[in-house]
Computed example of a mutant assay.
Amino acid sequence: MTTTQIRTCHKWFALIAAMQLLIWLATGAYMVWMDIEFIRGKPLVNKANTAMYQVKAPAYSFADFFKTHPDATEISLYTYQDTLYYRAKIAGKLQRFSSETGEVLPLLDNQQALAAAELVYTGKAKFAHSTLIEQSAPSEIPTRVLPVWQLELDDAMHSTLYISAVTGQMVSARHDYWRLFDIMWMLHIMDYETRENVQNPLLTIMSTLALLTALFGIALAYISFRSIPSREEQI
């Protein structure tokens, strides 16, 4: 390629990629500057901040559970407050079972969800609003965690805790800085739908274009240095 062709390609590639390059710089800077643990809600909750309980072996054994639910998957025992429960997926749906009788238990009610949230919440704000979400998850949580209780806090960051309506365990903590981080991540990876696919075609095209812009710029810099006359030639 001639110098004119290289210069033309560099100009047009840079013109097309310039806006996305600025977006990458701005979003990358935000994500680097912010403490990831803060973004994940560490100041709001302490998952280890749970009471220690002494529980007896389940009266309803694993053998009994397998016999009653042969199609169950991901079976485990866990303690919610001072009671031992089974949790397992039946036909892909997470359910909670009594460790005494093996019966399926209902979803947590509002008071139980608030009690579970207060167990891990470390702040001083009050819970202002609670909503049971069984379908159509908000964009800030994945659908796979449903059903959940959405517990909104009355604080400056518009914080929200999500508690599993099945197990009573905290699913996630969200606040305005996380929401802004999520937008930055979306713009950075150029996945405007799921915000998860870092190998989408649009990102591939723009990153290739940005790479070509840089390579043509390097080529122009090399050509310009080669064209500078030496001191002997100037004399």
Rank of each mutant, 00 (worst) to 15 (best):
L215E: 02
W24C: 02
L212Y: 07
A113G: 11
P201D: 09
F66P: 06
V32H: 01
I90Q: 14
T204K: 10
Q54D: 12
L77V: 02
H10S: 01
S224Q: 07
N110I: 15
I218T: 00
S207Y: 05
P147R: 00
L161N: 02
A59D: 15
G102V: 08
Q95T: 12
R179S: 04
L146A: 05
Q81R: 11
W178R: 04
P201N: 04
L202R: 06
Q5R: 15
Q95M: 14
K93F: 13
S230Y: 07
K42M: 10
R144P: 07
A116M: 09
L212E: 05
T83E: 14
N49V: 04
F66C: 13
T208W: 14
Y53P: 05
M19G: 12
P147W: 08
A17E: 06
A63S: 10
A219Y: 06
M186N: 02
I16L: 10
I189G: 04
E118M: 14
E232S: 15
L202K: 00
R7M: 12
L15Q: 08
S224W: 10
G92L: 06
L114R: 11
L220Y: 04
L25I: 15
P142Q: 01
E74F: 09
I75N: 05
I6Q: 08
P138M: 08
E233C: 08
P138R: 12
W149R: 09
A173R: 02
F65A: 01
Y177S: 10
I75S: 03
N197T: 06
L209N: 06
V120C: 13
R174C: 06
Y192I: 10
L187I: 06
R174F: 05
R226N: 08
A17W: 08
I163H: 03
Y80T: 03
T194M: 07
K124G: 13
F225G: 00
M184I: 10
D64H: 09
Q20R: 00
R7L: 11
I39E: 01
A221H: 15
D154H: 15
Y177Q: 11
V120T: 12
E152G: 09
H69V: 11
K42H: 04
P106W: 00
M157W: 14
D191E: 08
Y162C: 05
V104C: 07
T4P: 11
Y30I: 07
S230G: 03
F62G: 10
D35V: 00
D154P: 13
A210Q: 04
Y162Q: 02
T79E: 08
S76W: 14
W12A: 14
M1T: 14
K89T: 09
L21W: 11
S164P: 01
D109E: 05
